[in-house]
Nucleic acid binder design. Structure first.
Lengths: 191, 191, 191, 191
DNA sequence: GATGAATGAGATTTCATTCAT
DNA sequence: TATGAATGAAATCTCATTCAT
């Protein structure tokens, strides 16, 4: 009864959505959220401007969707990667995995670092970013406690900040930054 | 035509300029550069919108002026503060001074962290931010070399990232963040 | 290619058309023509957006179709209802029948009153509305002449305006308006 | 201290505002509220599009301002005109004054009749229109009671509807409508 | 030196309409 | 016949900037 089958429609929709998200992530990451226009996203995605609004209720909703998906992706990748190295200590595994993921998903991290100081944008994200941050801090604290840290809460705050700082400096200048060497140095200091 | 003396005019001008910069720094820091309108800055500064254009050629030039002045201020404060503690090692002095300055100039740091991922904004700043970054890194490297670090370049990159990360986490949640304890932990690990 | 007979197709077509007209009339009447989107009509009718374009060449043509059909319906109902009361004078019959029909077809009257001040919409209707209006006025004039009115043209204009005004006030607040009493008062004054 | 004096600014603002309101009233009246774009209003007023937003928070607020001002104007004109004819009965004065005002302010009445069936637009007006309507009805009722009407409430409803209907038919075709004659006929029937 | 009314380019968003199936 | 994803023109609105005084 339907002219295009439901399956065909599903494929079309999914592909459009993915293209829009990919283009938006790229542009948001490189130019910033506010500096990226919906028109630019549509052009980069190769679709009409209006199409975005059939997938997302607006620019903010698109940002939310990107965060929701990226956070889910990163969490999953993290779980898989971290589980694979039983020879490393928990702290070492976390550090190495986190910094490897930053390499893989540079655009998302740029975006994330770019929006986290902007009240208006953060508001649009609801509590997604703070919640995630708290979760990471808790994981680090647990790992440090297991490693015999005397003050795991403070050490977790410091380690988290260090990872975050390294990630950010790397993302600002991926080609010039000695990520491997810095990773080793960081692991060495927190082992 | 003007009944005011040149000197009086000069004072007025300087005061207006300072008020505009202060208002802009506050708003840029809390809302982000793009999300802050010139109108909002003028209102917060208690001047007319047009006045900004008699002091700066545009919004971008205002941002540049803020950076130029803030960087100069921070550099000066840094020199003074660091010189005052001959009892501490160079590395310790830098860490403590840097994190103390972050507390003093939260708005500037928020702004700085907020724009550094935005290509368009960075472009407006010319090389000011990268240059400054390089300078800090070099200072750290020198201090670490003096402390006998085996690989001062890598250690400087790590220490810089750690300070930056701590500063950023603090700035994101000044009330909740245990800055003192984290500062001590950081000093301890790099002494 | 189609397994359905021509007759079945014809039934489907007629049903779709009727549902679209009904939904459009309801929405146009309650929200206004411009404020009603084609998408909303399709949703209310339970069909796909594109289907409207297989029945009508566009939104304007749909409006024309609604008017054409509604005018025909009202005319027919009017003829039947008016013919049935030989005990009443022609003027009384017209007044009572008209106000009874307004109750029956509130949505159409709302729509009609809503669009009649809008040049662009009127243009789309061609001369349908003015023609109909002239026809009603002529009928009233004839009835008033039969009733012995001294100036049937002017009296027809006044009576028409009064009926129209009552109808409109009723349609604006169907529950609160004392339509019966006002109808009696109107009949009394023009008998 | 101010470059243009406050008075000059006041004049500029007031003139712009008046031009925008006049242009909007004209276009809303002839094309309808929804069919009139802000761009068209600005062009007709001879100002830039953005200027409207420095006087009104949006298109809806402009509509509200037009209604507020027009209702105030009409109320005032009404009071003056009605007071001037002690030789006429209250009912006669009201009818004659109302229909004279419709001639004077055709655009406003067209607009008023055009929006009163549109839920979305009415909502924007808050209760202004219903409140005004109720006020008129009450005035009519009082006048009819003074004239010795047996059922003043119903008679007021009928008279109001008749005036409204005549006004609307006149406004739809000002040149062809025999307003004077119909006014006389209406006065005669309700005296 | 300072003001704020005015401008107009460009942003986000809506929606009538098309078209492959 | 019917579907609904996709289009793109046009709408409302924002905001950096200009300019007369």
């Amino acid at each position: 009864m339907s002219p295009r089958s439901d399956q065909q429609n599903e494929v079309l929709r999914t592909e459009s959505r993915a293209r829009i998200i990919a283009a938006a992530l790229r542009l948001f990451g490189s130019q910033g959220y506010e500096a990226t226009s919906v028109r630019a996203i549509a052009e980069a995605a190769g679709v009409a401007q209006g199409l975005m609004y059939r997938h997302f209720s607006g620019k903010e909703a698109l940002l939310q969707a990107i965060f929701a998906q990226s956070i889910a992706d990163v969490r999953e990748s993290f779980a898989i990667a971290a589980a694979g190295r039983p020879d490393q200590s928990p702290v070492e595994r976390i550090v190495r995995t986190a910094l490897a993921l930053v390499q893989e998903r540079r655009d998302f991290w740029r975006l994330s670092y770019g929006v986290r100081m902007q009240a208006s944008v953060l508001r649009a994200l609801g509590g997604a970013l703070p919640d995630w941050t708290a979760e990471i801090r808790a994981t680090l604290e647990q790992a440090l406690r297991a490693s015999g840290s005397a003050q795991p809460t403070v050490d977790a705050a410091l380690l988290f900040a260090s990872i975050d700082g390294v990630a950010q400096h790397y993302v600002l200048d991926p080609k010039g930054y000695p990520l491997q060497a810095v990773t080793e140095a960081l692991v060495a200091r927190f082992k």
